[in-house]
């Protein structure tokens, strides 16, 4: 099947994939080790913001949507 290259994912391209023997990874092991010495900080920040937003949304819905609708029992 013919694939239009302009709409293909680049996930398979050498610049984005590491494989044994491949010499074109975007960062060397030493550079990566230096960057990750304290852990993947960026990933922590993204995950933290996402979880915080979900938690805040839950509280907002609970106190400003659910509770004003009145108690039931």
């Amino acid at each position: 099947m013919r694939i239009d290259e302009s709409i293909q994912s680049t996930a398979h391209s050498p610049a984005h994939v590491g494989a044994p023997g491949r010499v074109d990874a975007p960062i060397s092991s030493d550079e990566a080790a230096r960057a990750l010495r304290a852990g993947p900080i960026g990933a922590y920040i993204v995950a933290g913001i996402s979880v915080a937003l979900v938690f805040i949304a839950w509280l907002v819905f609970y106190f400003f949507v659910f509770m004003p609708r009145g108690s039931i029992g």
Binding site: G18, R22, V23, S28, L36, R37
Partner: peptide, 15 residues
Amino acid sequence: PPRGPLPDGIVPEDV
């Protein structure tokens, strides 16, 4: 310099 795939365990275990 030659670059290869990043090895497993590149983030220190204690981290």
